[in-house]
């Protein structure tokens, strides 16, 4: 589903991501782990088409992000690290806008919005203006907006930040259910024990380079993901 080949991203003279290669297959949940400034958000934004890049290629479902951007965007959903959305709209206005963008008919949008907003416990606040939402509520709304059009690849940048324990638990359930349906999830996180529990795969990035990746069980071995990560981080 997701194939990153020799991807390089520079900010001026600084190389943010340096020649990374990664493949995430259908139905896999892949955790993308790294220290602050390692290149996680840059990579996710490049896949989502937000950032241009100089070298390499990124394919989603066999389509190039560079040359088939519209087709790719129809198949993905991206949740940024900060749920910075149109503050002046109500929750339902924002969700309807997203549903319009993806061409969801009335029945589909009603079903999906009601289903996910109930599960993430935001259904009672959809009539309120987003500017009055707390950080967690905005995060829930953005997560709902990412799910309603049934994307094939979901890109999440630290999705659990700001979520209350109940919603956090529910979203983990949703992630696993979606993976079982063949949907691919690629997400960055600092919560290693959660990643260890729900992810089938992991990729660790350090200073713009992927230092290890693969099936979770094989990568971490008998130890914990935290132990592995700290070991790799301290190993210069």
């Amino acid at each position: 589903m997701l194939e990153i080949k020799n991807f390089v991203k520079r900010y001026g003279e600084k190389i943010a991501v340096n020649n990374i290669n990664l493949t995430v297959n259908d139905g896999e949940i892949c955790a993308f782990i790294g220290h602050n400034g390692a290149g996680k958000t840059t990579t996710l934004k490049a896949i989502a088409g937000i950032l241009d890049f100089e070298e390499g290629e990124i394919f989603v479902n066999g389509l190039s992000v560079k040359t088939n951007d519209m087709e790719v965007k129809k198949q993905i959903a991206f949740v940024p690290d900060n749920p910075d959305i149109y503050e002046h709209l109500t929750g339902i206005e924002y969700l309807n806008f997203i549903a319009d963008v993806f061409g969801l008919n009335n029945a589909e949008r009603k079903e999906n919005i009601e289903y996910y907003s109930k599960r993430l416990n935001i259904n009672n606040n959809l009539g309120e203006i987003i500017g009055t939402y707390s950080h967690g509520m905005k995060q829930k709304l953005v997560l709902v907006s990412a799910l309603i059009h049934k994307p094939k690849l979901i890109l999440l940048d630290e999705p659990f930040v700001g979520l209350d324990p109940a919603t956090s638990h529910e979203f983990k359930e949703i992630m696993q259910e979606l993976a079982k349906q063949g949907i691919t999830i690629f997400y960055s996180t600092h919560v290693l024990d959660v990643a260890e529990k729900i992810c089938s795969h992991v990729a660790i990035i350090k200073d713009g380079k992927i230092i290890t990746s693969g099936e979770m069980k094989k990568v971490k071995g008998k130890g914990s993901l935290e132990k592995l990560f700290l070991g790799l981080e301290n190993n210069d």
Partner: peptide, 13 residues
Amino acid sequence: KKDYEILTPLPIK
């Protein structure tokens, strides 16, 4: 910047 980040991942030309 904010508007760009919201709209770019969506299939809007």
